[in-house]
């Protein structure tokens, strides 16, 4: 996905590089970087060219809307919502348990998001009951129930441990 192989190795390396570009790179490092950047840009160009030369199938404007929409939804909706949740949690839940609640929320959010079309009942068609055939609302509840049961066990473990250590 997403131009992994040769394509975004360069970009990924860039994303992870601790220092901004240019600061004290060796000649070899610089050459490697140039090669990776060139490969990345070539892959990008190949992809964009492909998207534009088959407009009947790819509908470039619609694809672009989804491309930009995804990043906008993430940065403008998802991140602030997560921050708000984190802030609320920091006020509502005491520290030894907060980490567990946060962890369980991450798991719950990811599971709910990846199965969103299913439990929302989007997709499929009336004449094909073998697509999305399960009671997904119930199943999501079962999975999240298990996740939170695990979280509750962790919290109980913590409470017991804290009591054993004694107040202090």
């Amino acid at each position: 996905m997403s131009g992994d192989g040769d394509g975004d190795t360069g970009a990924r390396a860039d994303a992870d590089a601790p220092a901004p570009a240019g600061a004290g790179l060796s000649v070899g490092g610089f050459a490697l970087r140039v090669v990776l950047v060139a490969a990345g840009l070539a892959a990008l160009g190949y992809g964009v060219d492909g998207l534009l030369t088959m407009p009947r199938a790819t509908r470039p404007s619609n694809a672009a809307a989804w491309l930009i929409g995804g990043i906008v939804v993430h940065d403008v909706l998802l991140v602030p919502a997560t921050m708000l949740a984190g802030f609320t949690l920091s006020r509502l839940v005491r520290a030894p348990y907060r980490a567990v609640v946060q962890g369980a929320l991450i798991v719950s959010g990811a599971v709910a998001l990846m199965s969103l079309p299913l439990w929302r009942g989007y997709g499929g068609s009336v004449d094909n009951p073998s697509v999305n055939p399960l009671p997904y609302g119930r199943n999501l509840a079962i999975v999240l129930g298990a996740v939170w049961a695990g979280a509750a066990l962790l919290m109980i473990g913590r409470a017991v441990r804290a009591r054993r250590t004694g107040p202090g």
Binding site: M114, S115, P133
Partner: peptide
């Protein structure tokens, strides 16, 4: 298989 779009034996 609780949250996949298909179940191999349903159809």
């Amino acid at each position: 298989d609780l949250l996949a779009p298909r179940r191999p034996d349903l159809g």
